[in-house]
Design a protein around this nucleic acid. Structure first.
Length: 273
DNA sequence: CCAGTATCCTGCAGGC
DNA sequence: TGCCTGCAGGATACTG
């Protein structure tokens, strides 16, 4: 479940190990991801291009192959980018492989196929329907000032607002639950029924939990791993997500699991109001 | 416009 | 042991 910290972990690993390398052959097969994977188009455009750098916007990874364009990657639910020795076994659901040297490959693996890979021409970023609509980067220094007022004018539950990428870019189900628990705010509380100082506290906790998770290399619940194969170490620090039925680590009351905005939502009825 | 729900997809856990 | 069901969730199309 790659959210901002997991994508940032992937970005850093690729920046460290793959920046400056050139793409050789491109292998893959047309498969239906969130949109169809255009292998033929990538085969035409990628070979010979240099990986100039890796950027992140929300949960999107942007691979710059200047000046030709940018490869836009979203990991969806189960997507992984792996740096592998060419001789290493190919995992099931490997949809795309970029050769990066005599024995090095970058592989995109995505069993559930909620991911996305598409080619952006220079200038496309500003018009891309999803990319251009993304909201505030929560770790940006402007977030504490800009985000609370946006939450304050909405009637939807705060959990749903945190998950709305057009408001905040990069928060998913795990870190939304954690931030609300840390802030002591009920996930179903409407934004407009929450005092501004509490919203400021919430944004602060969103930033804190994301920042800590980035430091730990993300959260591995089932299968997240960095391109080098490292697991994220933040799971042990989760206090809400995955702890339904267990005592709240603040007050001891059993945490409950509700369904909110179509998502499992673990929270404490006593601490979160 | 806004909020809520169904949908895509596979793997896995739990029930019987 | 094996089959079935439901759940996991990121983005988005759709409904009310």
């Amino acid at each position: 479940m790659p959210e901002l910290p997991e994508v940032e972990t992937v970005r850093r690993a690729l920046q460290r190990h793959a920046a400056g390398l050139s793409v050789g052959s491109v292998r893959g097969h047309a498969v239906r991801l969130r949109r169809p994977l255009d292998v033929a188009g990538l085969r035409k455009r990628l070979p010979g291009r240099r990986l100039d750098g890796f950027r992140r916007r929300g949960k999107f990874l942007l691979v710059d192959l200047d000046p030709a364009g940018t490869l836009l990657v979203h990991l969806g639910m189960s997507g992984r980018l792996l740096l592998c020795d060419s001789s290493s076994p190919v995992l099931p659901h490997t949809h795309l492989t970029l050769n990066l040297g005599p024995a090095l490959e970058l592989r995109f693996v995505d069993p559930r196929r909620f991911g996305l890979i598409e080619w952006l021409q220079p200038g496309d970023e500003a018009h891309h329907p999803t990319l251009s609509a993304l909201g505030i980067e929560p770790l940006d220094e402007r977030a504490p000032r800009d985000l609370p007022p946006l939450l304050h004018v909405r009637r939807a539950p705060l959990k749903a607002l945190l998950l709305d990428q057009r408001l905040v870019a990069g928060v998913g189900n795990i870190y939304a639950a954690e931030a609300l628990w840390r802030a002591g705010i009920r996930p179903s509380r409407p934004g407009c029924r929450t005092a501004l100082p509490r919203l400021e506290r919430l944004v602060g906790e969103v930033r804190a939990v994301l920042g800590e998770a980035v430091e730990q290399g993300g959260t591995t619940i089932r299968d997240f791993a960095s391109p080098e194969g490292n697991f994220g170490d933040f799971a042990v620090r989760l206090q809400a997500y995955g702890h339904a039925g267990e005592p709240c680590s603040r007050c001891g009351l059993a945490m409950v699991n509700d369904r909110l905005a179509g998502r499992a939502t673990v929270w404490c009825r006593r601490c979160q109001r």
